[in-house]
């Protein structure tokens, strides 16, 4: 275990029943880093993030977070420790309104005054959400729901933000907006682990990247190098 890393994954294996979806990967995120994990559909990216968040049990391997083995920590306790996952498909509470969704994001916190301040900060960061604060989340557009899911995760004041395909299903303009926000949050010092099928956007925003193929990491390095890599270009960047 290397104390310099916020998150360190060593030889992690995850299986669904008998089928291995993640076949022994190692990966790390240093404090303040934006790390991209790219790969095609079915590579095992979401499985990796769900395991980090505690939603799936690892078959073997270790996950260290802030120097501590996460093994014994239940999913809800990881939130208190500063891990936040924006899941694939967003997972907003459709029958709760926007403000209630954001307050759910702060569920692990106690200080009501600070929570209210953060609520205002989120509404400043996402003015679209402010306009719709009383609306049920189910009535928002896909892009607005993605903003809500990100803002909700930020409401827990995470140290590690994990994003699972934030651009999925969004119009190009909305994708740009979401990525602008990701860069902004990253620039403020947040540590981010970003999963994307849109490899170009992800690598352009990230400082480092990993490439995942059928459950294993096949390439890793500085994001600019991966962007210039022939194999990456052919497989993920359309030429």
């Amino acid at each position: 275990m290397n104390p310099e890393y916020l998150l360190e994954i060593r030889d992690l294996k995850v299986a669904y029943g008998g089928i291995q979806a993640v076949k022994g990967i190692s990966l790390n995120v240093a404090p303040g880093e934006l790390v991209a994990l790219i790969g095609s559909n079915g590579a095992g990216k979401s499985t990796t993030l769900k395991t980090l968040a505690g939603l799936l049990p690892p078959a073997s391997g270790h996950v260290y977070y802030q120097g501590k083995n996460l093994k014994e920590l239940a999913a809800h306790q990881r939130v208190t420790q500063g891990m936040a996952l924006v899941p694939e498909g967003r997972g907003v509470f459709a029958r709760l309104n926007v403000t209630e969704n954001l307050l759910m994001g702060a569920y692990s916190r106690d200080n009501r005054a600070e929570i209210n301040l953060d609520l205002d900060r989120m509404y400043a960061l996402f003015p679209r959400l402010a306009e719709r604060c009383g609306q049920l989340a189910g009535t928002l557009s896909g892009g607005e729901q993605q903003m809500l899911a990100m803002a909700r995760a930020l409401m827990s004041r995470p140290r590690l933000l994990m994003l699972d395909e934030p651009s999925m299903g969004l119009a190009p303009l909305m994708v740009q907006k979401i990525f602008e926000t990701i860069r902004e949050i990253s620039a403020q010092g947040m540590s981010i682990l970003l999963i994307e099928q849109n490899a170009r956007l992800a690598l352009q925003a990230a400082s480092r990247g990993y490439v995942m193929e059928s459950g294993a990491i096949t390439l890793s390095g500085a994001a600019v190098e991966l962007l210039g890599n022939d194999a990456v270009q052919r497989a993920y960047l359309g030429g």
Partner: peptide, 10 residues
């Protein structure tokens, strides 16, 4: 509404 999302909220 969504147990998994609720877990992710802590």
């Amino acid at each position: 509404e969504n147990q998994q999302a609720a877990l992710l909220m802590g």
